[in-house]
Design a protein around this nucleic acid. Structure first.
Lengths: 164, 164
DNA sequence: ACAAACAATATGAAATTTCATATAGTTTCG
DNA sequence: CGAAACTATATGAAATTTCATATTGTTTGT
C-alpha cells in the first residue's frame, strides 16, 4: 500500500484521485492538448499572437487563399469568431481578404509578406517544440500517439459524413 | 512551391492539404479533442450546462469538497474564470461553497443533492459515449490511445515539476 | 427568368473571459 | 510578537466570444 493516507486530500497539485475523470477519454484528450500546448502557446503570445491567430497563420501557410469557413474548421474556431479574428489580423497587416471572383459570397484570405514572415518564424519553432515533445515520449508510447489520433479523427469525420 | 495542383482547392470540407498542420501533434490533439467531444458536449448543453460547468460537476463527483484552485486545474479553466463559474453554479443550486475551517483562504466546493443528481445523470451518459468512441476505434489503434495520452500527460507533469 | 432554397460572411447585443490587481488569510523568520 | 513573503480567492474593466440573425450572393426547380 503505497499511500493509504487518512488525509482529506493529496497535496500533489492535480489532486490525483482515481475516480471517473482521470481515465475518461475526453478528459485525457483535452488535458493532454492543454498541457502539451502550454509551452508553445506561451511563445506564440510572445510573438504577439493569440492562439487562434497562430492557428490561422499556420493554416494559411499551408493553404494560402483559404475561405473563412474552411479556416474556421481548420483553426477550430466558430465562424463569426473567425471573421473577427481575420479582421483584426488584417488590421495588423498579417493578411488580406479578397472576395472570390468565381463566387462572390466567398472571402479568400491571403497572407501578406509580413504574415508569411511571421509564419516562417513560428512554424519552425513549432516543429522544434513538437520534436522535443516526441523525444520526451521516446520509449513510452509516443510513436503510437499520432497514428491513434489520426485514426480517431478519421473515424469521427466518417461518422459526421454519415450523419450529414 | 510544393503545391502543384491546378485546382484552386479541395472540396472535402476540412480542406485536406498535406502541409504542416495535418501532421502536427498539437493540432491533432486539439482537433481530436474538439471532434471527439462535440457530440457529448451537445448533450451537456441540452442538460443545461456549459462545458466548463460539466467539468466542474464531474470533478466534484470524483472529489467532493475540492478547492477552487484544484478545480481550476482539473477543469482546465483559469482561476478567476472558475471562481465565476462556481458562483453561477451556486446560484443555480448545484453546489455550495464553504470556507475551509483549517485555512480560511481556501474555499471548498460541495455538490448539493441537486448537483449530485445531475452528475449521476451525466456521468453514465459520458461513459456510454466514451464506450461508443472506443468501440468506433476498434481494430484501429484505439486501445493505444488512452495509454499514450496518459504517458504524455505524465511526462509533461514531470517536466513541469522539474521547472517549478 | 423567377422565386424559393441555400450558402458564405458579417454584425448587434448579451454574456463570458482575460488580465491585472485587490483583498483576506497564513507562514516564515528575525 | 510582527513584518515580509506568500497563498487562495475575488473583482473591475476591457476585450473577446457566443448566439441569433441580417446581408449578400448563388443554385435549383419550374
Amino acid at each position: 500500500m503505497t499511500q493509504q493516507s487518512t488525509k482529506t486530500e493529496r497535496e500533489d497539485g492535480t489532486g490525483q484521485v482515481p475516480g471517473f475523470v482521470s481515465d475518461y477519454l475526453l478528459y485525457l484528450l483535452a488535458a493532454a492538448s492543454d498541457a502539451a500546448s502550454a509551452q508553445f502557446h506561451a511563445k506564440v503570445r510572445k510573438a504577439g499572437l493569440r492562439v487562434p491567430e497562430w492557428r490561422v497563420l499556420a493554416c494559411l501557410a499551408d493553404t494560402d487563399g483559404a475561405m473563412i469557413t474552411q479556416l474556421a474548421k481548420r483553426a477550430l474556431a466558430e465562424q463569426s469568431r473567425l471573421t473577427r479574428i481575420i479582421a483584426q489580423m488584417e488590421d495588423r497587416g498579417l493578411l488580406v481578404r479578397r472576395s472570390d471572383p468565381a463566387d462572390g459570397r466567398r472571402v479568400r484570405v491571403y497572407l501578406t509578406d509580413s504574415g508569411r514572415a511571421l509564419a516562417a518564424e513560428l512554424v519552425p519553432q513549432a516543429q522544434k517544440h513538437e520534436a522535443a515533445l516526441m523525444e520526451m515520449l521516446h520509449g513510452n508510447r509516443g510513436a503510437q500517439l499520432k497514428p491513434a489520433l489520426k485514426s480517431l479523427l478519421a473515424a469521427l469525420e466518417t461518422q459526421e459524413d454519415r450523419q450529414g
